[in-house]
């Protein structure tokens, strides 16, 4: 479903990504972790070409994202993305956040879009919030709306960038519950997170990044059982302490 081949990226002279290669198969859940600044957000933004990259190739469903002949908006519409900072649209209500792209991109009717939006809001437990604005919701609620917004497009796969960062502990669980349910339904997911509990529960593979490189790319059993690299061991011991 997602193939990343030899991707390198520079910000000026600073190399953020170095020869990253990995893939996510249909129905797989892949967790990406690593220290701050290791390039996790950058990599996941490269996947749907929100960030350009200088070298290598990324294919989604067989289509190269850096090929100028690829219809990027059309491709992106089928890839759900949840951002580190929510990025809900503050000038639109929760319902409008959910229906905007359905109407404008998928050409769905307004009523059908609202129906879909209500169904998804109900699913993430926020049906009553539909007429409110994002600023009136808690962080955890906003994250769940962001997930619902991505799901409204019936995505073939979903990308998550630290869906639980900057949340209080109780809110982390409400968001994780939604994500676990998604994973168990067979959604293809690539997820940057430090929630090792989530990784243990639903991940098929774990990718460990450091300084722009994919240092480890193994099954979760191997990753938690016997990480091969020292850097991953060090990272795990730090993260599992608390």
């Amino acid at each position: 479903m997602i193939e990343i081949k030899d991707v390198s990226k520079w910000y000026g002279t600073f190399q953020v990504l170095t020869n990253c290669t990995t893939s996510v198969k249909k129905g797989e859940v892949v967790v990406v972790c690593g220290p701050s600044g290791s390039g996790k957000s950058t990599l996941i933004k490269c996947v749907n070409a929100l960030e350009p990259f200088e070298k290598g190739e990324i294919r989604i469903d067989g289509l190269s994202v850096s090929d100028p002949s690829t219809d990027l908006p059309k491709l992106r519409a089928r890839v759900g993305m949840v951002f580190q900072n929510f990025e809900l649209f503050p000038h639109l209500t929760i319902m409008e956040n959910l229906t905007l792209a359905q109407i404008r991109v998928m050409n769905r009717g307004k009523e059908e879009s609202i129906e879909k939006g209500l169904k998804l809001l109900e699913r993430v437990g926020l049906k009553a919030q539909a007429p409110k604005f994002p600023g009136q919701l808690s962080g955890g609620q906003q994250k769940r709306v962001a997930i619902a917004r991505a799901m409204a497009m019936d995505p073939m796969c979903m990308l998550f960038d630290e869906p639980t960062s900057a949340l209080d502990p109780e809110m982390i669980n409400e968001v994780l519950d939604v994500m676990v349910a998604l994973a168990q339904e067979g959604m293809t997911m690539m997820c940057v997170t430090h929630e090792m509990g989530f990784a243990r529960k639903v991940a098929n593979r774990v990718i460990f990044m450091d300084r722009g490189e994919i240092v480890e790319d193994t099954t979760k059993e191997d990753f938690f059982g016997k990480p091969r690299s020292e850097r991953a061991q060090l990272f795990l011991s730090k993260i599992l302490q608390h």
Binding site: K45, N48, L50, L72, P73, K74, R76, A77, R78, V79, M81, F83, N85, E87, L88, F89, P90, H91, L100, A101, R104, V105, M106, R149, A150, M153
Partner: peptide
């Protein structure tokens, strides 16, 4: 915020839709 543009693109909106529907209304306000 730059992230708003990313969010628009990620939903499949093109440049002009992202500007018209997301960035300009906020900029204007």
């Amino acid at each position: 915020a730059r992230g708003q543009v990313y969010a628009g693109f990620a939903l499949g909106l093109d440049y002009s839709q992202t500007m018209r529907l997301i960035v300009l209304p906020q900029a204007f306000r």
